[in-house]
Design a binder for these strands. Structure first.
Lengths: 325, 325
DNA sequence: TTGTAGGCGTTATCAT
DNA sequence: ATGATAACGCCTACAA
């Protein structure tokens, strides 16, 4: 491989001068030109491990997500990536499969690789978040709120639940069920809280059997949907608080031929194929969330001071009648 | 931060001994125990940039894919990740957005970061593939064949096209269209070739206007689907040669209420919501392909010699009548 | 402005 | 088997 000393030799200068040209320090134009010529001739690019060792941090950032097969997170990843590339950083995408052990594993690696920063959608509580922040590495938490004192980008999940439920109420539904994620997932419990609040607001009951906690996956939505359809007093509408759960419920409803049951979905459905005429859709635009988070991270990496910030990512207004088709 | 010298001091040994304990060289049991104790006490983990610099390669592998929002590639990524983790490697996921420039960018980074290896689903021809192989770094190409002399894992795409088409013929369709990807994408052209061959085999015509080259995206399938429905002689079946294109065509067909038009799809549809009663589905199981590719890569990283191998990834038999619902 | 030289943290060589 | 020490390739005081 070609190293910095090769470039120096070819350009007839010292390695220090080559380094300075590459890093934008002041160098006499002729010398700089000679160096650049030599760099081109040899196709030289700096060894990033050596650079990282010396600079004490790399040009990599980690994006840690709980489910890489969920389009929400891939879309978020696109947003992060776009900002990162702009800033000369490359993104390492890590999938935790909703396991905190895997999450800690990846956060530790990020630390040991001296990565410039980390964007995390946490699968659960994480001691390493604080450790990373403590070693003053940039950390931004997205989507799922944590108690730690770090930068965060989240939705107003209670409000999302409220708005989606209100729309179903406005459609005339009176017995509205809610399928949400695990208790421990803050987006799941907050959106369910919004659902409960909106029902109370409308003077409608929210009996226990109308709230189902499933996994935030397609199968979770399917089994929850079946469970609700089997209820003695079947609901006349269902709110799915997440995109995958929405797909599951949608499958059950269309397979069971229950078009009269109303449906609300919080989240985006990029690959849905059925008509969704009167479905209440609340798009979250995860890519925008990724942009926001990455911008905050880049600012921190570039040395922005100040206390941890908590940003609420705005969402688009509700859409009815299958705009996504 | 805690360094190897801190551990050495605490255990009362030299840094060399600590390193040996960590890397499994032979050390007297007592000393080894003392070292391990010190490591635990201090919560020491080696700095991976320093290690990479010294060892000449890191414990990262790159997975370069053309479209991270395509479930095919996220599922493939899961497969790669599972094998990699088993081998103590972490995966850096890179999205090229079907741009060869981005692809070259990431391959260069993989080289400059001294990553242990690279799995690439190429967006196009790539000089860096040869360069990496030349620097004897492990390289495995997946899904889309390249002329380079590197390890490859591909489907028998011509056969996939043939089998899907034959199934549509067997359903009684006589005028079968084909929506495929860009000419330059080998999976697209090969599957279209299989379609053409199967039609010839059945004595059916394959006029030019029944073959549409679209982008391998949902919108590509939608516009191609509309174009086919607008034909003076409308096809009685459509073969979509990729999952996203399949979603697009499916949307157009269901929106236009043309249940009588047959449909075949090569690929998996994890988020489909409509009933697909008589649809011909050819699952590809991308996760398995990821497993195969990662196993080959790990073997090479561990020093397996021998010429480049070209492996054909087997696929499941055809499924009819909406097993995916 | 430029060059010399030391050090980032680890592993590998070479003595012992 | 263990310890001292020289690299790995780069950046950055410091000196000139």
């Amino acid at each position: 491989m070609t190293r910095i000393k090769d470039v120096a030799a070819r350009a007839g200068v010292s390695t220090a001068t080559v380094s300075r040209v590459l890093n934008g320090a002041t160098v006499t134009p002729d010398l700089a030109a000679a160096v650049r010529q030599a760099v081109d001739d040899l196709g030289y690019t700096p060894d990033r491990t050596a650079r990282s060792l010396r600079r004490r941090h790399s040009e990599l950032i980690a994006l840690v997500v709980p489910d890489i097969e969920n389009p929400f997170f891939t879309s978020l990843a696109r947003g992060v990536e776009d900002v990162a590339r702009e800033a000369g950083l490359s993104v390492v995408l890590c999938n935790t499969d909703e396991e905190t052990a895997a999450q800690e594993h990846y956060l530790r690696i990020a630390a040991d690789e001296n990565m410039a920063g980390v964007v995390v959608a946490p699968a659960g509580p994480s001691p390493w978040l604080a450790k990373l922040a403590g070693r003053d590495r940039a950390v931004v938490v997205v989507d799922r709120e944590v108690p730690d004192d770090v930068d965060q980008v989240v939705f107003d999940n209670v409000d999302l639940g409220r708005r989606a439920t209100r729309a179903l109420v406005a459609q005339g539904h009176r017995r509205i069920a809610c399928v949400t994620g695990p208790h421990a997932t803050p987006t799941a419990s907050d959106r369910a809280r919004g659902w409960r609040e909106a029902l109370a607001e409308a003077g409608l009951p929210a009996p226990d059997d109308l709230l189902v906690h499933a996994s935030f996956r397609v199968e979770g939505g399917e089994s929850a949907g079946r469970q609700l359809l089997d209820l003695p007093e079947r609901p006349d509408a269902v709110l799915a608080t997440n995109n995958l759960v929405g797909v599951g419920v949608l499958r059950v409803l269309s397979a069971a031929h229950h078009p009269e049951v109303g449906l609300g979905i919080i989240g985006d459905l990029p690959f849905v194929t059925s008509r969704m005429d009167s479905t209440v859709l609340l798009p979250l635009r995860p890519r925008e969330m990724g942009l926001t988070a990455a911008r905050m991270l880049v600012a921190r990496i570039q040395g922005e001071p100040g206390p941890a910030r908590r940003v609420v990512q705005p969402t688009r207004p509700i859409a009815m009648d299958g705009t996504s088709l």
